[in-house]
Nucleic acid binder design. Structure first.
Length: 804
RNA sequence: GCCCCGAUGGCGGAAUUGGCAGACGCGCAGCGUUCAGGUCGCUGUUUAGGUAACUAAGUGAAAGUUCGAAUCUUUUUCGGGGCACCA
């Protein structure tokens, strides 16, 4: 009887000992790079969601090896990060030690699943040999003006003791922990990702990615085209710019609004309104972002007492401040056209500001009219529709030096500083004379010093500030300086790990250019949809920067991307607090890794979120046991092939075998594992009924299913007398001539309803088919008393008789 | 509020181009094996009527296009995901 505990261990040891999955480098073969999103090694270990994507890539990797490719299938660790630091803090441990333990546990678990990783290429983002190159890339960015320090409004989380990036905020709260965030001005390291906005947008078009992920990135980048318009302030030399996608409505601007944080506010507010304005600003500042959005269910704002001059008609319009105008987008100021913008309309209604229609259509006594129509009351724009008017007004603005065409993005520069300990030190020194320099390249890596007190400082400094010996430096001229104490976010290390796998031990370069050229871009990248924006946008940006530096050969790193779905329990996400977590260790113990792998692939489409069925692994185990009994005769001393597996082929299984080879090959390539497995079951059902099974077909079947259930297939392969691992067994091919039969079944319909069928030779004459169909007694019954109007014949499929 | 995706038996899901709806598996029922249970093998399983052949209905709902619709079009309901004052 098959014992998964013994056999799986046996082959896992065999693969490790023989380095079976060492990346091939045969120049005669083509290369294939199949990549998993590497995990964050948390203390909880793997849950059953991890193996889903990992099994999918493993199947593809094993299939490609069999098809004769050099395959790169690596694994590593996204090892820096806040959760480890918090856990270490709570339990009084060193994050480095915790990380090491967690990695060991993850690696053990991955190995019990039988994944075919090339462990000689393992990387960890917290390894100084690795983050040397994270720091090196940062320095290149700094030298090229892509990394800079700035006093910017940031998302401060007092609970996490650090700022977080815009990308890390969900529903106004931190993505990790769900803590409130507050706007606060802080000096931060920033990466100029906005410079790449257009390329990040354009590059999406040629990628084989899920459409929704592309759409999310497009929305995140948020490109919009409009005009920047300059307004003068009445009785003042000051001016301000607004951005608008609807410059054509300029004649309908009846007031202007500045963001409360706009610096101009203090300058222009008149004495009579100062108190009110200051009170409003103060109220806004004390609220978290979430409260601010709640607050804004109804509009709020105050008048500054100042007026702006509309450049197109020299009318004076009041300037208000309101927090529905964001300081961080566009120019932090808008011209308000209440007649044709719903937000401005709501505001004008509340504060009784004038509403002036400049486009015909709609009823502005009820709501804003935002659709297209001819312009009215707009001087030289009258009669034009929106598109024409936009062009004309931009020309006019440029002619009169009052504005210009402008493209704006929602994307903002990447906030790159974290006030925490467990991350890559930013390799920068601030000198007493105000100069800022990089740590020289030949001194990299700048190693994160060991620290015992890693409590967040609650200030813009990280816990590193307490390590005086490390922080304080003196140069050769006796000039004193302090090291940057902020660390990088853990998105840094994960933005380029796929490059390091290609040349993981290189001490002189991030990776060898020639090797990168051989392997990049990644052919297939599978991971969770939660990384649709952040990781995938950062990684594309990082790779583009390296591309511009001539370090990597491709602008886009991931050619084909796929998101696996979630595995649910009782129609809900698995989580410790709900107590519905399934541990893969338990499933492997009871049913074996092969059964778990197969079940997760058989559940349904890879990208669907599906409920975990507790007896799912039992059902795939049952199927695997059937395969074992069909092919293997267990004798007391030794297992041998079953005697009905023979050298001769009686032809019974020709069709189903060739169909199986075709369907499984195509389905694996398309990542349709659930239907591939059902076809493998169809073959076994047929083989079980057959008197004999040709050895060629038996072994071909083993090769097809080995990527899903590698342990058992290695064992059977060995029983069938092979000395080598099934890993490199040649992938079977099919004979198309065996797929078609000489006779086909023709379905007969009367008025579209199925009434009978008959067998006919393939590609039979249409007239014959019609005659035979009409002659069927059952069909005759339905034609009784009716006149045949028309007969439609689909060759080799259907005859439809239309009768009345 | 806006954008995207989806809805098929008791359950998970199959169904190239519009052409036999429900592959494959789970579950359930019956029979055999077994002292018994489990395993294993066989049979049945969309619903209604009928011993059966067969008939009728049937892919969230309503309408449409077509000889023919799970598949295409329109409207609508529900579910999931994303964005959310982005001017």
């Amino acid at each position: 009887m098959y014992n998964h505990k013994v056999v799986e261990k046996k082959w896992q040891e065999y693969w490790a000992k023989n380095h079976t999955f060492k990346t091939g480098n045969d120049p005669k073969k083509k290369n294939y790079y199949v990549l998993d999103m590497f995990p964050f090694p948390s203390g909880k270990g793997l849950h059953v969601g991890h193996p889903e994507g990992y099994t999918a890539t493993d199947i593809v990797a094993r299939m490609k090896r069999s098809e004769g490719y050099n395959v790169l299938h690596p694994m590593g660790w996204d090892a820096f990060g806040l959760p480890t630091e918090q856990y270490a803090l709570q339990t009084g441990q060193d994050p480095a030690v915790v990380t090491k333990e967690n990695i060991a546990n993850f690696k053990r678990q991955l190995n019990t699943l039988g994944f075919s990783y090339d462990w000689d290429r393992e990387v960890s983002t917290s390894d100084p040999k690795y983050y040397k190159w994270t720091q090196w890339t940062f320095e290149q960015m700094y030298k090229n003006g892509l990394a800079y320090e700035a006093e910017v409004p940031v998302n401060w989380s007092p609970d996490l003791g650090t700022v977080v990036a815009n990308e890390d905020i969900v529903d106004g709260k931190t993505e990790r922990g769900g803590y409130p965030i507050y706007r606060r001005n802080m000096k931060q390291w920033m990466l100029r990702i906005t410079k790449y906005a257009d390329r990040l947008l354009a590059g999406l078009d040629n990628l084989d990615w899920p459409e929704n992920v592309k759409e999310m990135q497009r929305n995140w980048i948020g490109r919009s085209v409009g005009a920047q318009i300059t307004f003068k302030i009445k009785d003042s030399d000051e001016t301000f710019d607004v951005f608008s996608t609807r410059p054509d409505t300029l004649f309908g601007a009846t007031y202007a609004v500045l963001a409360p944080e706009n610096k101009l506010v203090q300058k222009i507010t008149t004495d009579g309104h100062k108190e009110e304005v200051d009170a409003y600003i103060k109220q806004i500042e004390s609220k978290s972002d979430l409260e601010r959005t709640d607050l804004n269910k109804t509009k709020s704002g105050v008048f500054t007492g100042a007026y702006a001059i509309n450049p197109v008609n020299n009318q004076k319009i009041p300037i208000w401040i309101a927090d529905y105008v964001l300081g961080s987008y566009g120019t932090g100021a808008v011209m308000a056209v209440p007649a044709h913008d719903t937000r401005d309309y709501e505001f004008a209604q509340k504060f009784d500001l004038p509403i002036k229609a400049v486009i015909k259509g709609g009823d502005i006594s009820k709501e804003a009219f935002t659709e297209d129509g001819p312009h009215i009351d707009s001087d030289f724009l009258n009669g034009l529709n929106v598109e024409e008017a936009k062009k004309k007004i931009v020309d006019w603005l440029e002619e009169h030096n009052a504005g210009k065409k402008k493209v704006n993005y929602k994307l903002r520069d990447w906030e790159f500083s974290r006030q925490r300990y467990w991350g890559e030190p930013i390799p920068v020194i601030h000198w007493e004379d105000g100069e800022t320099t990089l740590v020289p390249e030949d001194e990299l890596p700048l190693v994160l010093p060991h620290a015992t007190d890693i409590k967040p400082s609650g200030t813009p400094e990280s816990p590193l500030v307490n390590l005086k010996d490390w922080v304080n430096v003196v140069d050769k001229n006796g000039r004193k300086g302090k090291r940057e104490t902020n660390t990088m976010p853990n998105w840094a290390g994960s933005s380029w790990y796929f490059l390091r796998y290609i040349d993981p031990h290189n001490d002189n370069k991030l990776a060898d250019y020639e090797l990168l050229k051989q392997w990049m871009p990644v052919d297939l990248y599978i991971g969770g949809a939660e990384h649709a924006v952040r990781h995938l946008l950062y990684a594309r940006f990082w790779n583009m920067v390296l591309y511009d530096l001539g370090v990597v050969p491709n602008e886009e790193p991931f050619q084909r991307l796929y998101n696996q779905g979630l595995i649910l329990k009782d129609h809900d996400k698995m989580s410790k607090s709900k107590g519905n977590v399934v541990n893969p260790d338990d499933v492997i113990e009871e049913y074996g890794a092969d059964s778990l792998r197969m079940y997760e692939m058989f559940m349904g489409p890879l990208d669907a979120s599906i409920d975990w069925d507790d007896n799912g692994p039992a059902s795939t185990k049952k199927f695997l046991d059937r395969i074992w009994r069909l092919f293997v005769n267990d004798l007391d001393l030794k297992a041998i092939p079953q005697e009905n597996v023979v050298e001769e082929n009686d032809g019974t299984l020709d069709k189903v075998y060739n169909e199986t080879v075709k369907k499984v090959t195509e389905d694996f390539d398309a990542l349709h594992f659930n239907t591939a497995i059902s076809q493998l079951m169809v073959f076994i059902n047929a083989a079980q009924k057959a008197k004999t099974i040709p050895r060629e077909y038996a072994e071909g079947f083993m090769t097809l299913i080995a990527p899903i259930a590698p342990h058992m297939m290695e064992e059977i392969w060995q029983i069938y007398g092979h000395d080598e691992s099934i890993t490199f067994a040649k992938w079977p091919t099919y004979d198309p001539s065996k797929l078609v039969e000489s006779t086909v079944e023709i379905m007969v319909q009367v008025n579209g309803k199925l009434r009978g069928n008959f067998d006919a030779p393939k590609d039979a004459d249409k007239d014959d088919l019609e005659k035979q169909a009409l002659a069927l007694p059952h069909v005759q019954k339905f034609l009784d008393g009716k006149e045949v109007k028309k007969v439609i014949i689909v060759p080799n499929k259907i005859v439809n008789i239309v009768a009345k």
